[in-house]
Design a protein around this nucleic acid. Structure first.
Ligand code: FES
Ligand code: FES
Lengths: 145, 145
DNA sequence: TTAAAAAAGGATAAAATTGTCCTTTATTAA
DNA sequence: TTAATAAAGGACAATTTTATCCTTTTTTAA
């Protein structure tokens, strides 16, 4: 809706990896896909993107899997994940689909749309993986249903 | 990004129709597609949806075309167009793609996401076609670029 | 050193969205 | 009445997004 499916899976996967990393556990794609209720192979592709963008760390071979350093959980904000997967159209695109969003030649919805978009952007920029993982940890929030 | 292409075209088309209706002019699909820079046949499909949902009025035959009554321009809010074309996932869907968005079993982003979604929803519910058309009329805003 | 485990990557496939084309129906004005 | 005009509708095509499958590379532990 707001994010692509790929991005939704990416965020959920990252939060799950963060949660498990808090316990020092590396997790496999199979486990991740199971826990966030997503298609395995597709999730693997998305994790590759997150890995290339240094959002999560991957280790090959037995005992390998995905992990995130404790300090990185604070540094990684949602906007980084969204940007890595969906690009920056969500931050720059016109709400009515004009080729560019530009206050000099705005669409009829521009002002009102920019307000919302700015709030969304601020929210994503200020929300860290750690913050989301801790809500999960104490059982207040969920990654599937 | 936030709306489907179909919805973007639908809103732009409706605003253009409103603008022309203020001058008492009916407009054809061809003219609309030209003025909002959208694919003709696809736009025609979208206009059918708007017509079926009584958002715009259509008249067949020579001198026919699309129009909106002056009073309807005040009554028709953006949320009605979005709902007619994209359904209500934008109002009800979970930001992280869980099958349902429910405060009883929320995803990690629920609270922050609901804030944004509520603002967006309020904005769409309170913005009328008339309001958008008048900005265009005085040359402050644009439907293509 | 070898077998097994796990991510990376390439090639497709399925589904959804976006877009086109052509025929039918309704209406108007000559 | 008829020719022309314009929306409605159905069938199909292209593109994008989502999803699967299979092979290769890396790494570990026995
Ligand atoms: S021009 Fe449309 S949102 Fe800015
Ligand atoms: S449960 Fe995810 S936004 Fe409400």
């Amino acid at each position: 809706m707001m994010f692509s499916k790929a991005c939704e899976y990416g965020i959920r996967a990252a939060v799950y990896i963060a949660l498990q990393s808090l316990d020092g556990r590396r997790v496999s794609v199979t486990e991740i896909a199971e826990e966030i209720d997503s298609p395995i192979a597709f999730t693997a592709k998305i994790l590759q993107q997150l890995t290339r963008n240094n959002i999560v760390n991957s280790v090959k071979g037995p005992t390998g899997g995905f992990e995130i350093d404790r300090e990185e959980m604070d540094n990684v904000k949602l906007n980084m994940i969204v940007k890595a997967i969906d690009g920056d159209k969500i931050y720059k695109g016109c709400g009515l689909g004009l080729k560019e969003c530009d206050a000099q030649k705005p669409c009829p919805l521009h002002d009102k749309f920019v307000d919302i978009r700015t709030d969304l952007s601020r929210m994503l920029k200020s929300t860290s993986l750690f913050e989301l993982a801790t809500g999960l940890e104490i059982g207040m929030t969920f990654l599937k249903r």
